[in-house]
Amino acid sequence: MKLEELRFGTELLKRGFASMQKGGVIMDVVNADQARVAEEAGAVAVMALERVPADIRKAGGVARMADPARITEIMEAVSIPVMAKVRIGHFVEAQVLEALAVDMIDESEVLTPADEQFHIDKTKFTVPFVCGARDLGEALRRIREGAAMIRTKGEAGTGNVVEAVRHMRNIMGEIRALQGRSRQEMADRARALEAPVELVIECAERGRLPVVNFSAGGIATPTDAAMMMQLGADGVFVGSGIFLSSNPSRMARAIVEAVHHYDDPKAIADASRDLGEAMKGLDIHLLAKEEVLQTRGR
């Protein structure tokens, strides 16, 4: 590499951006005021949306990328990074977000999928991507497609942490199960996971995913957030949990505190005091099959 030569959009820059988010809370916001509340509370980034996931559920119909005017309004309101969601496989929505200069693109099952066969080829973009995963196979397939960050899917818009827990336990458990295996056995496992063997070996060696792994989909309280951290998350996404609670500013700050002090129950207790009502939430078992978001994209 020649002196003075600049390189943009490299794997190192994309994964490095994700590393800077570690230990942080990324909050869903739908306007500039909410974005400022999130930044003030200590969010490391905001996710700019038309509606939070719980309201997407209520609204029904096809959920798409947010209006560029809405995203730009949020980008102008805060100095922390701004992320936005595109439909699974919708590479033109992603091109648009890159043109708007959002800092990270979430190829998300919360929106209605645009392609049932292919995810976006994320290596073609300068802006890094985060993608959802329920298990190790999904996570490694997304990384192979160029995702710089993974978030466990959970079940968005439910305020119910049970699926987030299931997915984090799946991934961490599957990685633990790789350790101590021979290369032949790992190659066998890679075939079953439909994932590159090099990524499988890297997981086994490091005892974790090769990229930053956040938790998402149902986190509604400081204790939910701290539990996900103790289960191995590098940080958390909170969607509906903040702005559908009775006191968003306090809830946001409390979740930031709990993520930082995730292994200190007394500090989590302090953070949890007098927060008002958390979002109401949904029982996962009462969702109809077509209402389940996590099965979108595999």
Binding site: M1, R7, L12, L13, P81, D103
Partner: peptide
């Protein structure tokens, strides 16, 4: 600028 303008350089 934003993440899109992040770069590596010697």
């Amino acid at each position: 600028g934003r993440q899109r303008e992040s770069f590596e350089q010697d």
